[in-house]
Simulated scan of single mutants.
Amino acid sequence: MDGFFAPLKPVGPGLRLALGIACFALFFLGWGIATYGGFVRPLFLASPGETLASGWALFVEYGFARDVLITVGRVVGGFLLAAVLAVPLGILMGAFKPVDAFFQGFMSFARYLPASAFIPLLILWAGVGELQKVLVIFIGSVFQLVIMVGVIVGSVRMDLLEAAYTLGASRRGVVLRVLLPAAAPQIFEALRLVLGWAWTYVIVAELVGASRGIGHMIIEAQRFLDTGQMIFGIFIIGLIGLITDFLFQAGNARLFPWTRGR
C-alpha cells in the first residue's frame, strides 16, 4: 500500500481502468440501495431501472435523439466560435507582454461576468433562436479560454527561447517553432476543460425560449415530476462529456506523443 499511494507515482492503464469502473460501480450501488431499499421516495429520486426505462421511452416515443443532436450542435457551434477567437488572442497575450498588458484587465473583468446574466439581452438582440443559445456558450467560454491560453503560453520555459535566439532564430521563428510546440499540449487540455464548461451554459440557455434540446426536455420532465427523465437527461450530458474527454485525450496523445507518461 505504501507504493500504491506514493505521491505522483503513475498508474498503469489497466489499474486506471479498473479503478474508474469501480467508482462507477460504487455510485450505482449506492443509488440502487437508496432507491430499491426504500430510503428515498420515487418522487424525489427514480431508481436505476426506472431511469433506464424513462430513457428508452424518450428515444422511442418522443424523438429524444433529435434533442441530443440539437444540443450537441449548439455546444459545438459556440465552443468553436470561442476557440477561433480565444486561442490566437491568448497566444498573442502570452507571447507579447504589451498585448497582455492591453487585454489583461478587460479579460479579467469579463471572465467574472456570468453568461446566464446575458440571456435577457441576447434574447433582445438575437431573439430566441439558435444564435442566442450559441452566443450564451460563446460568452461563457471565450474569456476563460483567452486567460488560460495566455497563461499557458506565457509559462513556457525562458531557457528554450534563449537557446533558440542563440541558434539564430527570429522572433517569428521563436513563436512558431518554440512557443507554440511547447504550449500546444496544454492548450489542447485547456480546450478540453472549457468544452466541459460549455455544456453547463447550453443547458442554461435551453431553459429559456427553447422548444428542443436536452435542457428543454429536463424542464418539461420537471413539470410532470418525472425524475427518471430528468436524471436520464443529466446522464446523457455526462456520457457525451465522457466521450469527448476520451476523444480529446486520444487526440492529445496522437498529436503530441512526447507528452505521454506525464
Results as ranks from 00 to 15, higher is better:
residue 40 V to K: 09
residue 44 F to Y: 15
residue 77 G to K: 07
residue 248 F to E: 01
residue 170 S to P: 05
residue 111 R to E: 03
residue 207 L to N: 07
residue 107 M to F: 10
residue 199 W to K: 10
residue 165 Y to L: 11
residue 236 I to L: 13
residue 238 G to H: 09
residue 131 L to M: 14
residue 15 L to D: 04
residue 208 V to S: 01
residue 8 L to G: 03
residue 167 L to F: 14
residue 2 D to E: 15
residue 74 R to L: 13
residue 56 W to F: 10
residue 133 K to Y: 04
residue 182 A to P: 00
residue 67 D to N: 09
residue 30 G to N: 00
residue 111 R to M: 10
residue 120 P to A: 03
residue 126 A to F: 15
residue 183 A to C: 03
residue 214 I to A: 07
residue 196 G to V: 03
residue 215 G to C: 14
residue 161 L to A: 12
residue 216 H to D: 13
residue 201 Y to M: 11
residue 42 P to I: 12
residue 131 L to V: 15
residue 9 K to V: 09
residue 93 M to Y: 01
residue 191 L to S: 00
residue 259 T to Y: 10
residue 107 M to Y: 07
residue 153 V to W: 00
residue 210 A to T: 07
residue 153 V to Q: 00
residue 119 I to G: 00
residue 82 A to L: 03
residue 70 I to F: 06
residue 116 S to I: 15
residue 252 N to P: 08
residue 260 R to M: 14
residue 262 R to K: 14
residue 68 V to C: 06
residue 1 M to Y: 08
residue 142 V to N: 05
residue 137 I to S: 04
residue 181 P to G: 08
residue 124 L to A: 10
residue 229 Q to N: 08
residue 89 L to Y: 06
residue 221 A to S: 15
residue 227 T to K: 13
residue 90 G to R: 07
residue 241 G to Y: 10
residue 139 I to S: 05
residue 152 I to C: 06
residue 184 A to Q: 05
residue 90 G to Q: 08
residue 249 Q to L: 14
residue 21 I to C: 13
residue 99 V to I: 06
residue 12 G to M: 03
residue 244 T to M: 13
residue 132 Q to N: 14
residue 75 V to A: 12
residue 84 V to A: 12
residue 148 M to N: 05
residue 79 F to S: 10
residue 209 G to W: 14
